[in-house]
Design a protein around this nucleic acid. Structure first.
Length: 571
DNA sequence: GCCGTTTTCGGCCCGACTGTTTTCAGTCG
């Protein structure tokens, strides 16, 4: 998929245009870029079908540029813009607090055209004397640069969510705080999080702000007002706190949940109805029409309530207006977990310990999936140990009682597409799941064949972490996604949504794509200890972001219904 | 550069905070 590459170019074009003070075009480029990043279709495919201009935010000019990139691998317009803008001036826009206007002033006055130059100029005290700047802005620029270098990467959802909950809990304990909600991309359960947004109602905002800005984990206060404050934590991450009145809480929560494009569209719809939507409510003239709850706001705009995980302007608003939104799978719907490891390979707990922990979570069943023999580094099991493992699981099931424990295995797909165990071994397992663990850098064709040939083995039930990516660390291996999904549908192989925080694989857009192609899914934690089992929440979040319903997810079904999802099996 | 059941031209979401200012522009979300 070239979606991301083209989006990156559009973002850069937007920056370069902004530096030249071109109005409106930057927003247009950015809107298109965001759309490309989050859409589920392969841009090359969309282009082939001649449907580029159907993408919201893409018109004639951008469609041509996308075509140009697919054809030539570059966009001439970008090269031309680069010639007009000196050096790496666009780097400067990444410095918090420094925008296009002042970046250009710095270039004109000091010939600063890179991050390095900027840092030098600021530390030599050259910036404070320029009109429009002062000593304070010079310091802000220096801090901004070091911040940029330190914490540029977005946090994993699995990291941000507990931090946000911890801070929210502290604030909740204050007498002055009435309602509190976590907003922003965390509430939408995006896979990575830029900063943490909190929303509060309070009668004494100043006291709350005082507490907030002086919490021990706060390293620096960026802004402090009656309704809005921002702080930086020791890990370099920003937390924004907003305080509103009770009558505006729903409108504010809606607003601060986003995403941006979803909100812009809602506001446009409001305007067409003669209304005005802001974080303070939905207004007709100056009269508040709705605002206390989100439900009220969506209803007043003439649509069904939209779950936060869907708010990405990917067609959900249109569906909500027609009343055709699907009912998303719920966080409490999971009845079991199909992937976890024990001491038999690279896990830290025993089979029994995992089973007891899973039972406490209310599950009806789990599958133990220790590694197959080629995973030597993960203590993969040879055939002899595998037999011992089977017995051990059967024994644990009798001892723990009240939870079904399936004998399964995470079987590696070898480089030639064959599996790590023979069919004679595979047929002894209750459930067979397969994974790519090596040979990631194959050409697309070969990798596609390798995967598809494994999925055609008649004993295979689940394809684990199908793209192999690690968020921020490792890109997916290159393969034909649609072909893989088609093969898995044909062979009744389910696609795993791996819930471990650093994987979240499949990701949201691919889940949607796979669902369109008829796939069924499992959501599993890949836990390597009893603590890892709680990651299920993140997997369900991804399923919801992929618009899945309960019926799409195999392990949202009880033990009794399970057999119908598996081929030739009586579970 | 995009978009349209008020428009194919003339709009483009709305508001808070900060620093450098004597009333506001720039930046951010």
């Amino acid at each position: 998929m070239q979606n991301g590459e083209i989006a990156a170019i559009f973002y850069q074009i937007a920056d370069l245009l902004e530096l030249q003070d071109v109005p409106f075009k930057p927003q247009a480029y950015r809107k298109a870029a965001r759309q490309l990043e989050s859409m589920s279709d392969d841009i090359e495919q969309v282009a082939k079908e001649g449907k580029l201009e159907e993408i919201p935010g893409v018109g004639k000019a951008l469609a041509e540029k996308i075509q140009e990139y697919i054809r030539t691998g570059k966009i001439k317009h970008l090269e031309e813009l680069k010639k007009k803008v000196p050096g790496n001036l666009d780097e400067l826009l990444a410095v918090p607090g420094l925008g296009p206007k002042r970046a250009v002033i710095l270039y004109r006055k000091l010939k600063v055209d890179s991050l390095e130059d900027l840092e030098k100029a600021a530390s030599l005290g050259k910036i404070r004397n320029i009109e429009g700047f002062g000593e304070k802005s010079e310091q802000e620029i220096l801090k901004g640069i070091s911040l940029l270098r330190r914490g540029q990467e977005r946090m994993l959802l699995g990291v941000a969510l507990p931090i946000a909950r911890e801070i929210a809990k502290k604030l909740q304990e204050l007498d002055e705080v009435q309602k509190i909600e976590i907003g922003g991309s965390i509430r939408r359960r995006a896979e990575t999080i830029g900063d943490i947004d909190l929303l509060i109602t309070s009668t004494k905002p100043q006291k709350v702000m005082d507490f907030f800005t002086s919490m021990p984990e706060v390293e620096r206060t960026l802004a402090k007002g009656d309704t809005k404050s921002s702080v930086l934590l020791g890990n370099g991450k920003q937390v924004d706190l907003r305080i509103v009145e009770n009558k505006s809480f729903g409108a504010a929560l809606q607003y601060f949940t986003g995403n941006k494009d979803h909100n812009v569209k809602l506001r446009t719809i409001a305007i067409k109805k003669g209304l005005k939507l802001s974080e303070y409510g939905l207004f007709r003239k100056n009269k508040l029409v709705a605002g206390k709850t989100e439900q009220e706001v969506y209803a007043a705009l003439g649509m069904k309530y939209i779950e936060p995980e869907m708010r990405e302007n990917q067609g959900e608003i249109e569906l909500a207006i027609k009343g055709n939104l699907s009912k998303l799978i719920g966080y409490g719907d999971m009845k079991g977990d199909f992937q976890m490891h024990t001491k038999f390979s690279d896990g830290v707990n025993t089979i029994k310990e995992m089973a007891i922990a899973a039972k406490q979570l209310g599950y009806e069943y789990i599958a133990i999936t220790d590694h197959s023999k080629s995973e030597r580094i993960a203590n993969g099991m040879d055939e002899k140990r595998l037999l011992q493992y089977v017995q051990e699981i059967r024994k644990a099931e009798k001892e723990v009682k009240g939870i079904r424990i399936f004998v399964s295995c995470e079987v590696s797909i070898k480089v030639d597409g064959s599996l790590d165990y023979s069919d004679d071994i595979l047929k002894k397992l209750d459930i067979v799941s397969v994974s790519i663990h090596s040979g990631f850098k194959m050409p697309k064709e070969t990798m596609t064949q390798r995967i598809c040939s494994a999925l055609q083995n008649k004993y295979v039930d689940i394809f684990n972490h199908p793209t192999g990516r690690y968020i921020n660390l490792r890109d997916p291996y290159d393969f034909d996604f649609d072909k893989m999904v088609e093969t898995s549908v044909k062979n009744k192989v389910h696609l795993e949504i791996n819930a471990s925080p650093e994987r979240l694989d499949l990701k949201d857009s691919l889940i949607r794509r796979a669902k369109e192609l008829g796939a069924k899914f499992t959501v599993s934690t890949d836990a390597h200890s009893i603590n890892g089992l709680v990651a299920m929440e993140l997997g369900v979040a991804m399923a919801r972001r992929g618009w899945l319903e309960k019926k799409d997810v195999v392990n949202a079904h009880g033990l009794k219904e399970l057999s119908k999802f598996f081929k030739h099996k009586n579970l």
